[in-house]
Nucleic acid binder design. Structure first.
Lengths: 346, 346
DNA sequence: CAATATGGTGCACTCGTGTGCATAAGGGAA
DNA sequence: TTCCCTTATGCACACGAGTGCACCATATTG
């Protein structure tokens, strides 16, 4: 027993204790390897008493797979992305992978991506941030997938998974128009992001299809503060809109708060408000926000499946997947809406 | 140029291109190593053209440090923990470390910890979850620190960093009592968690000190739904309390919503509500929640500093640190409170 | 000039593991 | 018996990088 404190337990130690070779120890941890049940049991027992667990770093050196997935995220203030990250992390670990998370402001990501690349992550998932083309090419050259959730990216190397933003927003317009709204304003997200553009596009199209013209379009940058500023601009104008459709929930919450507190408006009676994301808070009775569910679970399942395929060395060509969106109607657009019963597929 | 697609770029490739030995490449990436500026420049240039970045896995094998910190988190639905995770992640990467995040329900953590241990993480940070003693011992045997943020843990091997939960809650009681409240109810968190017990203790002590007796104590399990149920129980009783102090913000939001929507109460006129965490949502005008700021930034700074010391092989003995808490007064307890100006140290 | 310090470089060993290959033992079929 | 197939095991090489040590070139000092 030469085990000094701080010294690692190696497979050799286990092998000696179990009276087998080091190979046997390795095989005991490899499902389907040629090893007798008895030997495996003896190895695992020895490992247990020594407190051994195989060194994933050393293993990755030879297998050329780390089991680590780089996740680039920003803006966990937005509860939608917080929930997304948690679900993604849970799904990954269920698939035997572990998320190495990176929080980055838009411009510093490239530097951090290099850091992730030195950890030789098996895949890269971007939930919000962007990625320079140079980095995308360099990463994809390793035959490892890059997946953008909730954002369509220009680079060919990237698989994008989004919900059907256009028809999601179209169903919002239909819903509001069906309720008799004629002057509908729109609070857009970030001009750079595809999701915002698609949602705005869906809004404009369906407004035109219903013979309506927008009662103002303002950018709220997807943030709470931006949404509040947008609300002040919209509600401070000459004529009041009868509905405000927002490109995400965060801005919708701010719009509701400003409308109520600063303009004394009743929701939905005087003005209806809708969001997009169907984040957890949308269900709180303080806002009871009509929103569009993005079907996060399915987006994540697709992402993890795609990653799993790459890890098993069955790479797939990058492509764009769209999952259907679903309108969820609550009291911010309809008086006394019954929670949950108002679900409408679009 | 034998570089097949998919093959890694190794330091040897860079060395050949730069016309130096492999050692020089290694030293080019090691600050303070004996290497001439000229050679370093040539190496870095060659690395750039080949798209090389050192393999952190291989490096960790020899340095016995991975630069990865395991972070065990749960319940990102709670915006406080979401913000905590983001700030922690940002602070870690600023210190050259990367967070490997693990989401676990209370009971499965042990299994996932073994997974993290095979990645040889340099430290373990628990933001919410617990850890079995067996695992704590096994991990601490590697001379690597375990840090619990926001939770005091029984094991000797663990460094706990919390805010001063007792005096934080005491200042809430003082604040409410000063406003003339006589019947104050308390919504506790999770019975198992030290933070909840400490906050309840502070509540009870200061109530006694002010000569008041609690108008009901109900457990809300730190969740939104639990808070709503607690509110219904408290407000459905015979006599209405004039204030409800909650052990965290999430429950306070639910309490406010139930009080307003289901009992038609005006806040703060008929009943005052306070929270604990001072999460971002507390500042939204929809709730404008009086709360206790936990000083997350300082807790995180301390945690990262502790980890950094361990990585530099200057280990510190585990200990318990308490940072001061700060009462933040908003409109949920005081009519027309000016945002931010009501800060009161406790 | 000789003696010594200083900065720079490469060799070779090491970290802990997976796996192809050779080998051995055992069992069944001809 | 002989031949072949299956299962189990160990040897030895590789994965990619850090670093102690020896060595060399050059500048500095006496």
């Amino acid at each position: 027993m030469k085990g000094k404190s701080g010294s690692q337990v190696r497979s050799l130690d286990v092998a000696r204790l179990a009276g087998v070779s080091r190979s046997a120890v390795s095989r005991a941890y490899t499902p389907g390897a040629y090893i007798s049940d008895e030997t495996r049991a003896r190895v695992l027992h020895a490992a247990e008493t020594l407190g051994y667990s195989p060194n994933a770093m050393a293993r990755s050196l030879i297998t050329r797979r780390t089991g680590i997935v780089g996740v680039v995220s920003t803006d966990l203030d937005n509860p939608f992305y917080a929930a997304l990250l948690q679900k993604l992390g849970t799904a990954l670990q269920k698939a035997g992978l572990a998320p190495l998370v990176l929080f980055g402001d838009e411009n510093s990501t490239d530097h951090h991506i290099t850091q992730m690349m030195s950890y030789r992550v098996d895949a890269l998932v971007m939930t919000n941030a962007t990625l320079s083309s140079r980095m995308a090419v360099r990463f994809a050259a390793q035959d490892k997938p890059i997946i953008a959730i909730n954002r369509l990216m220009a680079q060919d190397e990237i698989t994008s998974i989004t919900c059907d933003n256009r028809s999601g927003m179209q169903s919002v317009v239909d819903h509001l128009a069906d309720l008799g709204c004629r002057r509908i304003a729109f609070v857009a997200g970030h001009p750079d992001s595809s999701s915002s553009r698609d949602r705005e596009d869906g809004f404009l199209r369906q407004m035109a299809a219903r013979g309506l013209s927008p009662a103002g379009i303002v950018t709220g940058h997807y943030t709470h503060d931006g949404g509040a500023a947008a609300a002040r601009q919209i509600l401070g104008g000459d004529t009041l809109p009868d509905a405000i459709a927002c490109a995400n929930d965060m801005m919708a919450f701010a719009v509701m708060d400003v409308a109520r507190k600063e303009f004394g408006l009743r929701i939905p009676r005087q003005v209806k408000v809708t969001g997009f994301d169907n984040s957890g808070l949308a269900d709180w009775s303080s806002h009871a926000l009509t929103s569009v569910d993005q079907n996060v679970d399915e987006m994540i399942a697709l992402a993890v499946e795609h990653i799993g395929a790459a890890v098993r060395l069955e790479p797939r060509a990058p492509h764009h997947i769209e999952v259907p969106a679903r309108l969820v109607i609550r009291a911010s657009s309809v008086d006394q809406a019954q929670g949950g019963e108002g679900d409408v597929p679009c």
